Simulated assay, not measured.
Amino acid sequence: MCRWMAFSGSPLLIDTLLYKPKHSLIDQSQHAELGAETTNGDGFGLGWYPTDPVLSGTPGTFHGVGPAWSNRNLRDLAGHLRSPLFFAHVRASSGTAVQETNCHPFRHENWLWMHNGSIRDFARLKRDLLLEVDDALFPLIQGSTDSEAMFYLALTYGLRDDPVPAVERMVGFVEATAARHGVADPVQMTVATTDGERIWAFRYSTAHQSRTLFYSRTVDGLRAVHPEVEALRLLSDQDRLVVSEPLGVMPDAFREVPESTYSVIYAGQDEMSGFNPR
């Protein structure tokens, strides 16, 4: 499948988290430990919100079809871009083409979306799923992935107004469509989406055996447990990180997101609740 990371907090250079930790996302692109595949080399993507207040509502994106570990432009950008909220994704294709329009995160207006997982037998379900997308949104679909289809279905169901019910309706519609086609256990997902102010992260699968997802403990709590770690003094109490697998910095730095759960991260806070497809 894929590996991804979402950060929210005080502005920092993206390479601080993308490259420097022991088990960074770049390391996971070659040596994933908890994913369905060890290697995630079918493209990558970065989405970030600038610190410039004039531009802060519009995320920038950068995608490549090669492996993240060898892309010189990604390394250079990450060492020069400072952002208070960014997404990073390394892709292992589940069957669709390796092309830039299939690389996450996907963008619509001020929203970003990225996904690890799949819709089972997507080729069989694709027509019925895409016909549900709002007429005004349909022409904006650029790629061929199930992930982008999920994004535009969620937008159709009101993602921009109320994200959680929109994603619940999206998953419920995919499951109902799969049932009509005789496809069992169709949804496998860990999804992150953001409007530039809040991050919503979802962990769910129809079979209730979801891909892994973790969130960082509060920085002040980590400082209390690890006063000897110098790097913790450089982080803000508002910094939050959601990852497909821990970055290997400290064994107790991350907690697993429970099955069938979503989390909302904003202004240095995080809240969790049950996720129930409609």
Rank of each mutant, 00 (worst) to 15 (best):
M1D: 05
M5S: 07
A6V: 08
S8D: 09
S8W: 10
S8P: 00
S10A: 13
D15S: 08
L17F: 14
L18V: 15
K20I: 03
K20F: 06
K20L: 06
K20Y: 14
L25K: 01
D27Y: 14
Q28M: 04
Q28V: 10
Q30W: 10
L34R: 13
G35P: 12
E37G: 10
G43F: 11
G43Y: 11
G45F: 09
L46V: 14
G47N: 08
G47K: 05
P50L: 05
D52K: 09
L55W: 07
G57S: 15
T58V: 12
P59Q: 08
G60E: 15
T61E: 05
F62W: 10
S70M: 08
S70V: 14
R72F: 15
N73G: 06
R75H: 11
R75P: 00
D76S: 13
D76E: 15
A78L: 04
G79D: 06
L85H: 02
F86V: 01
R91V: 10
S94T: 14
T96F: 15
T96R: 05
T96K: 14
A97N: 02
T101M: 12
P105E: 04
P105G: 05
F106C: 10
F106G: 11
W111T: 10
W113D: 04
M114T: 02
M114Q: 08
M114F: 10
M114A: 13
G117R: 01
S118G: 02
S118Q: 11
I119S: 01
F122H: 07
L125Y: 07
L125G: 07
R127D: 07
L130D: 07
V133H: 07
D135T: 06
F138G: 01
L140E: 11
I141G: 00
S144H: 10
Y157K: 11
G158M: 02
D161E: 15
E168Q: 13
R169H: 14
M170K: 09
G172H: 01
V174E: 00
A178I: 01
A179S: 11
G182D: 05
V183Y: 05
A184Y: 13
D185H: 09
D185V: 08
T190E: 03
V191F: 12
A192T: 12
T194Q: 02
D195T: 05
G196S: 03
I199M: 01
I199R: 00
W200A: 06
A201W: 01
Y204K: 04
S205W: 15
S205A: 12
S210C: 05
R211S: 06
Y215V: 05
S216W: 08
S216N: 03
R217F: 06
R217G: 15
T218H: 11
A224Q: 14
V225E: 12
H226M: 06
V229S: 04
E230F: 12
A231F: 13
A231T: 08
L235K: 06
L235G: 01
Q238D: 15
R240H: 07
E245W: 06
L247Q: 09
M250Q: 14
D252R: 05
R255W: 04
E256S: 12
E259V: 02
S260C: 14
S263K: 08
I265F: 15
Y266A: 10
Y266M: 06
A267V: 00
G268F: 04
D270A: 04
M272P: 00
G274W: 05
